[in-house]
Design a protein around this nucleic acid. Structure first.
Length: 822
RNA sequence: GCCCGGAUGGCGGAACGGCAGACGCGGAGGACUCAAAAUCCUCUACUUGAAAGGGUGUGUGGGUUCGAAUCCCACUCCGGGCACCA
């Protein structure tokens, strides 16, 4: 493809200039209105792929557009540089993850640079930078001191492939590891947790204040999983001073309780089990322990619940509603980690209880009248209560309140809210992460590492082989230390922090990486936060976006970020994925399309235009054979602009005439269109509008009649400004060629349309007969209803189409249409 | 099973109750050229018709409306999330 300019030369020239002239550096005391534009900082996996290109194209467009609007735009970038892939690659290559990571960072940075995306690199943050680690550890210690970080023995998700524990959020719905795909095992281990559950309510409520895609908000709401109910006591039949606490969201169905169930992990199970049932119970518990989390909690195609496995404990409890004895079972469909680990079972109104009751031959008592067409099974809808004593005749909502009151008085009942959200497990038994800054002293116990000893950095000569324990634990030099409190021997914590802790506050550090002696200066950060526009992939809908929200709230509360807004990301945009042959492009799948070949052929500008033009930014993109042609088409558009702005085959005339006015109007209407399209994330139509404008301008200028020189120049200059955020290199180059000595197109103000040029003098009004278009007439945009009607009825084509019929009714919507009903 | 999102020419998509298919890709024809590439111009939903013109058409079926791709109801298919959370 022969191009009218040297792409590589032009693009590298401008990339150098933006960098060396610090065009997009911005200071914290900048007096202009502020805008914080942020793309999720990447994991450095090597050269950029099309997903990165898409992400940074959108981000860069925003940075340049907001700058032209006159704002001080904060545009930082960094790297989420701790993580498993580097560690695994280093083990394989016999290298060190830092060497590996530094190389990948360099590659990625280079290919982002070649895209022409501009950042204030003075603010770069990367996780394995000791300075960043120091503050990450400081934050951990502050969380610890404020009771937000704690150590506990708990059943945790263990991934054998990654040889580490995982957070709940990193386990897929089918029980496999989000990263390696291995089946996750359940283990009891001492681990570190962050108390995200303290913030469950706030995290849930604040979702309403966010300008985020509904989809993401719904996913977070579901993940937090709030449910309101009553916790109360079922007294043991054998000893009424003791009770089994259960949680239910349906206290109104209490009269239908025909048994109770405890989880296999329930602390009271031993006591509840009678001697004659012990063998059965033992077998059930053993089977539940052996079963993977997958078998226990996941489901088959038949929906929730496999076979309802359980065993009778031999004990009975008293249902407080009717004082009847009901048997207590142990079953693995009840989870030890949710609610109280025990439930009251109401088979008539709960599907799972129903299935269990059927299998074990337990009675089913309906407490809600089922609708006439209801067949069989559990009925969970609304209806009037029956068989329910004082609740008979009440609807579900009313009965819930009555039952709660009853349980508060009679059964130590407590109205309670439970969340599906669990505390965030943050310790990892891996090497390439930020070490947890804690020591264990035999005399003084568990102590945070003092500030002056931070950061705790791992030594280089550690054996990282997967042995199931933390690599750092095997390094005696690291492990053994001295207690700063008593001077005696102590051991360091050998686990590292989840890398999601690093990505939970990097955006705060970006806003102020300059202050010394603290993670950041809250006063400085306050100038930029919250992020005005956050851009990233939908895959972070739960994990990163929930953790970061928690971090910011916690940082404010522990006093590291006083006065900061409690929500970090005001607006979020999630871009679509790029798919090749139906599956997501990713390094692990090995189906990447490198941008490099496009940089040489069509330029970063061509590739950027393609990503903007191919479809709505939020939609997925299918990379097909046609894609190559569309990319060529985008480069062709650039070439046409180059040729036109160099007056190639252009004719001129001397005086401004109607054809020039029409062009001028088209230009100003395009300003309106492009501006509104950029504001509403409709980049594909913004590019289309510019293509249309080029067609219009070029057609006139290259006709025999030609263009008025001054009008053409104005048109071209405005077009270059509108295109500048999308194709920054060529627009900067052409601007410089056309207007030498002027400041760069990127420092120009965004064009404003002249209202006098955007109004239409006449518009085409459609004339319909019975809703079908029969004719078109020209009318003034301000035409009255009466004039519109008479214009339609006197139109010859309409008269002939009517064929003498008398209109029954005429609908007038001036100036758009007249619809004649006959 | 529950909750979201989607379905428009050969293809990507446009149209925020008012001319369906902007813009681009592909395709056809033409100009330029010794020729090709590049570039430029014209046409391009389907169908019927020699043409003028007519008919049909936004996943399917209903509804609201003078008027529906757009709003409502039911369904089909595709994509995503959640899923024994009491």
């Amino acid at each position: 493809m022969a191009r009218p300019f040297d792409v590589t030369q032009v693009e590298s020239k401008w990339q150098e200039r933006w960098l060396t002239e610090g065009t997009y550096q911005v200071d914290n005391d900048d007096p202009r209105e502020r805008f914080y534009a942020l793309c999720m900082y990447p994991y450095p996996s090597g050269a950029a792929h099309q997903g990165h290109v898409r992400n940074y194209t959108f981000g860069d467009l925003l940075v340049r557009y907001q700058t032209m609007l006159g704002k001080a735009v904060l545009s930082p970038l960094g790297f989420d540089s701790f993580g498993l892939p580097a560690e695994n690659a280093a083990i394989k290559a016999g290298s060190h993850p830092r060497i590996f990571t530094d190389e990948r960072m360099k590659e990625l940075k280079n290919s982002i640079h070649r895209l022409g995306a501009v950042y204030d690199w003075r603010r770069e943050v990367f996780s394995h930078n000791p300075e960043y680690m120091k503050w990450a550890q400081t934050i951990f210690i502050e969380f610890y001191k404020n009771g937000l970080a704690y150590r506990a023995n708990a059943p945790v998700n263990w991934c054998p492939g990654c040889a580490t524990v995982l957070a709940n959020e990193q386990v897929n719905a089918d029980g496999t590891c989000d990263r390696s795909g291995d089946l996750v095992e359940r283990k009891n281990l001492e681990q570190w947790f962050f108390k995200i559950t303290d913030y469950a309510e706030e995290l849930l409520n604040d979702i309403d204040t966010l300008e985020w895609p509904e989809r993401v908000k719904t996913m977070q709401r579901n993940w937090i999983g709030r449910s309101e109910g009553v916790e109360f006591e079922l007294a043991l039949a054998s000893n009424s001073s003791k009770g089994l606490r259960v949680f239910t969201t349906r206290p109104d169905t209490g009269f239908g309780v025909t048994y109770a169930v405890v989880a296999p992990e329930h602390p009271l199970l031993g006591e509840l089990t009678t001697d004659d049932q012990r063998a059965n119970v033992q077998a059930l518990v053993e089977r539940a322990n052996a079963a993977s989390e997958l078998e226990r909690t996941a489901s088959s195609d038949a929906g929730a619940g496999l076979d309802k496995r359980g065993a009778f404990t031999g004990s009975y409890v008293i249902n407080p509603f009717n004082n009847e004895q009901v048997p207590v079972y142990v079953a693995d469909y009840v989870l030890g980690t949710y609610g109280t680990g025990a439930i009251m079972a109401v088979p008539a109104e709960d599907e799972r209880d129903f299935a269990f009751a059927k299998v074990h031959g337990l009675p089913i008592v309906r407490t809600i009248e089922t609708p006439a067409d209801f067949e069989d099974g559990a009925y969970s809808g609304d209806g009037l209560h029956i068989n329910s004593g004082f609740m008979d005749g009440m609807d579900v909502e009313t009965a819930k309140k009555a039952a709660a009151k009853f349980l508060e008085e009679k059964a130590s009942g407590l109205v309670k809210v439970n969340y599906r959200l669990r505390d965030w497990l943050v310790s990892r038994q891996r090497f390439w992460g930020c070490p947890i800054p804690i020591i264990y002293c035999d005399k003084c116990g568990m102590l945070p590492v003092p500030a002056e000893q931070l950061p705790v950095v791992a030594p280089d000569d550690v054996n990282m082989d997967k042995s199931g324990q933390s690599p750092l634990a095997t390094h005696e030099g690291f492990r053994n230390t001295t207690c700063h409190n008593c001077g005696g021997p102590a051991r360091r914590e050998a686990d590292t922090m989840d890398t999601f802790t690093d990505s939970s506050w990097y955006f705060l550090r970006f806003a102020d990486p300059f202050s010394t002696g603290k993670p950041f200066d809250a006063e400085q950060v306050k100038k930029w936060m919250p992020v005005d526009q956050y851009i990233g992939g939908i895959e972070h809908a739960i994990l990163h976006l929930l953790y970061a929200r928690f971090y910011v709230k916690a940082l404010v509360d522990v006093g590291i970020a006083p006065g900061l807004p409690r929500e970090p990301f005001k607006r979020l945009f999630t871009q679509g994925m790029i798919r090749l042959d139906g599956s997501k492009m990713s390094k692990s799948k090995g189906n990447l399309i490198a941008p490099e070949k496009y940089y040489d052929r069509v330029g970063a500008d061509g590739l950027r235009l393609f990503h903007l033009f191919v479809g709505p930014p939020a939609d997925d993109v299918d990379w097909t054979e046609q894609t190559e042609d569309v990319i060529e088409g985008c480069a062709r558009f650039i070439d046409r602009i180059v040729r036109l702005s160099q007056y190639d085959e252009v004719n001129f005339h001397d005086t401004f005439d109607d054809t020039d006015l029409a062009v001028k109007q088209a230009v100003h209407r395009t300003i309106v269109r492009v501006t509104s399209d950029l504001e509403r994330w409709s980049y594909n139509t913004a590019v289309a509008a510019l293509m249309e404008l080029l067609n219009t301008v070029s057609k006139q200028a290259r006709s025999d009649h030609g263009a008025h020189r001054e009008t053409l120049d104005d048109s071209l200059n405005i077009m270059l400004k509108l295109l500048a955020p999308m194709a920054p290199h060529i627009t900067a180059e052409l601007w410089e060629q056309r207007l030498p000595g002027e400041k760069s197109v990127h420092l120009q103000s965004w064009p404003v349309a002249d209202p006098a040029l955007t109004v239409e003098e006449t518009v085409v009004m459609v004339v319909q007969i019975n809703g079908k278009v029969k004719s078109r007439v020209n009318v003034a945009p301000s035409v009255s209803e009466a004039d519109a009607q008479s214009a339609a009825l006197s139109d010859p084509e309409t008269i002939s189409a009517l064929g003498g019929a008398t209109p029954k009714r005429i609908v007038c919507v001036p100036p758009r249409l007249v619809n004649i009903i006959i």
